[in-house]
Write a protein that binds this DNA or RNA. Sequence first.
DNA 1: GGAAAGTTGATGCAATTGCATCTATATTGG
DNA 2: CCAATATAGATGCAATTGCATCAACTTTCC
Lengths: 144, 144
Amino acid sequence: MTAKPDETTVAAWIALARAGRLTMAGIEARLKAAELPPLSWYDALWELEKAGECGLRPFELEKALLFEQYNLSRLADRLVAAGLVERGACPEDKRGLKLKISAEGRRLRREMWEVYAQAIQVVVGERLNTAEAETLASLLKKLE
Amino acid sequence: MTAKPDETTVAAWIALARAGRLTMAGIEARLKAAELPPLSWYDALWELEKAGECGLRPFELEKALLFEQYNLSRLADRLVAAGLVERGACPEDKRGLKLKISAEGRRLRREMWEVYAQAIQVVVGERLNTAEAETLASLLKKLE
DNA sequence: GGAAAGTTGATGCAATTGCATCTATATTGG
DNA sequence: CCAATATAGATGCAATTGCATCAACTTTCC
């Protein structure tokens, strides 16, 4: 039987939930203010750009982004409709397909990074020094 | 002009986004598995329970929960429809109203806490010791 | 006092997300 | 090989969220 959490654990959870929402909202708001698409588009484009020439299978992107299958399928719809990604056939598995970033997708990803990077700096960089950021990252990794 | 974030800052942000989503998903999944409503219901009920007899104005709850105004208005609709909360008139401002938790609301909040507390223990408590949880909380508070 | 501006909360409509299920293909076990 | 089972991805429908705007007050400032 799992025990109840102590005060400190609860406080850490509450702080995580609040900080997560606030920082996320701050970053999304900056992207929107710059008339750019949401962060999920950036994440998908970046994964696909890193994946290079042969692209990624939807289920791989799904894992990378922690998306539900149906949500990824629809995110892909939108990215394809916007001309940022192409759905190609998958030779090794006829059930599947390959998602590949387009040149326009790469361009938009770079444009989004300009705003996104500054947003990260404002919501995180300006509030934590290097040692703090390192400590935070290593503690958060224990939660994954 | 805001500078670009360094590697460490970006890593902290990525870790925060991932850990936030994973822990949240874990907790929501446990509530759902127990056939309980989502966390936002708990948060609202808990704030209203703490507020006591005279309840809270919607805009106060909005601030406490970091909700958008229209989302809070609709969350209140659902809570009222479920018999967990009552919308009462607000004497000191005729535009406004008072949200008050019902007995059934208190009962459900307590029931949810049983599951929620264990979920916090599993996703946070079992992964961080007390010192780590304290450090994490204090770093996250700097981001608010 | 009274007009202008601000605040509080609701709501119509569009976009997104969640859920259940479906089709197509792959894999596994006999 | 073939039936049973599992996996990949899409989709209809319901619930939720986001956006814009509204109506009903309150506050402010002349």
